[in-house]
Design a protein around this nucleic acid. Structure first.
Lengths: 253, 253
DNA sequence: CCTTGACCCTGACGCGACGTCAGGCGCTAC
DNA sequence: GTAGCGCCTGACGTCGCGTCAGGGTCAAGG
């Protein structure tokens, strides 16, 4: 039970961050390693790894390091309020994005009929401007609700859909398992293709999943025995194979 | 007489950027105003407006100012095509953001479990005056807007529905509590079955909840003392038992 | 035995895209 | 006459690191 400590290089490689970033997190008190070796090397425990993963997820979601630190260190932290705040920001982002699309349409109109007298230059920047209290506030609220409802409907799957989702995932993983048992290397095109399908699967059914996010997920797999068990149902060593394939796929766009 | 020239403050307000940002764009040669007034004020034309819109769009889509400059100054630059491409990307972003909202709602829905009466005004006992609760809720949620969002999210269920939901959840948890006090290990088939019922409960009443999502929620439970309190109402150590059962259930279908 | 290289340490400066003063100018309003 | 607005030009601060520089320990190789 001695080797539960990671040195900084190992942790960096494991988590896909640079050593410098870990230095930085130490420096600002965001991730202070649990111990130091006789040679004054930083020693990270498994708990440190978990905290690092939370930090990286926070970063992935666009939080500042200070916010992440506040979140992780505050014992009375209210998850609901934090989540609700994030949700509010995301809804605002949807609205802003839609208005930006309208702004693009305005610009396109301007391009086709350059001398358009009725052209209101404000239209060009709608959505960029974080406009505060507008008379349209209520209209926007109604709009928001409508879209949220629409999103809900499309997102609530029935049992049949879930069956299909699970079957789809199983098909991808068993494909990878077949490659593994055939001795095909995880960096092969075939394995990477399946890893990509896995990513798109998550992206479609769960949440937007970039390559970066996908490797984060793969890191979680390696850190958590439960995932290993899940994948190894398809054969021994399939979990590590899947993770490797994901990483190679992410590295090679 | 239409003033074809904008001074820097007017343009900044129009576009929702700071004067300093426009200074910066001028300084790096990204957006050099077409003219200067007698007082040496920067004067921006309509063409400058369109270029600024392109800059803001590029920045919104994650490009560096240098990349934007290269794009706009490329002699083969097709404004119309660029706009259409940006439009496509923004539409994709709307979809991504909506899915993120759904993911957050899934977590929120789970966090909104019974015991939090003040979160669900509809759930108050008959004859209970909701006003003092409203005050408390607003105090807890801070902003009225946030409160409205929370209310809207849970609004689709009436009192009877909430009663049933809460009763269902209580039954599952008390079943797990019974197993815990009987010394049945959380990896037992019985515990896993109840964990699975818990997952389906969330899936039915809140949001689609995969095994993966379920374990994420379990991780949230461990991080929030409030949940420990909620589950431990059914007995000491029930919270950790529930989390363990969920994890074992997720690992073993 | 000495060198090389892998890995680690602590500063310290660099960068991108601005934010935030500071100090100054020309004009208008009271 | 002076207060204030809008503008100007520097110039330094911020965040999340990247990128050296200078130095230490240790194992392997010549």
């Amino acid at each position: 039970m001695t080797s539960t400590h990671y040195r900084i290089g190992a942790l960096a490689q494991l988590a896909g961050v640079t050593v410098r970033a870990l230095h930085h997190y130490d420096q600002v008190g965001l991730l202070v390693p649990s111990g130091r070796s006789a040679r004054n090397y930083r020693l990270y425990t498994r708990d440190d790894l978990l905290r690092l993963q939370q930090i990286l997820l926070g970063r992935e979601l666009g939080m500042s390091l200070e916010d992440i630190r506040a979140m992780l260190d505050d014992p009375g932290f209210d998850h609901r309020r934090a989540l609700l705040e994030q949700r509010r920001q995301l809804e605002a982002r949807v609205e802003d994005t839609k208005r930006m699309i309208n702004a693009i349409d305005a610009a396109l109109g301007q391009l086709t009929t350059p001398g358009d007298i009725d052209m209101n230059p404000e239209n060009l920047f709608d959505g960029f401007d974080p406009k505060p209290f507008e008379a349209e506030a209520k209209a926007r609220w109604g709009d928001t609700t409508e879209y949220a409802e629409a999103a809900r409907r499309t997102k609530r799957y029935d049992k049949a859909a879930w069956q299909q989702i699970h079957a789809e995932e199983a098909a991808i993983v068993s494909g990878l398992a077949a490659l593994a048992s055939a001795g095909t290397p995880p960096e092969s095109a075939a394995a990477r293709e399946l890893a990509e399908r896995h990513r798109l699967h998550i992206d479609r059914w769960y949440y937007p999943c970039s390559h970066t996010m996908h490797t984060r997920l793969a890191e979680l797999y390696t850190a958590d025995a439960r995932f290993a068990a899940h994948f190894d149902k398809h054969g021994e060593g399939v979990a590590t194979y899947v993770v490797a394939a994901i990483q190679h796929n992410a590295a090679q766009p």
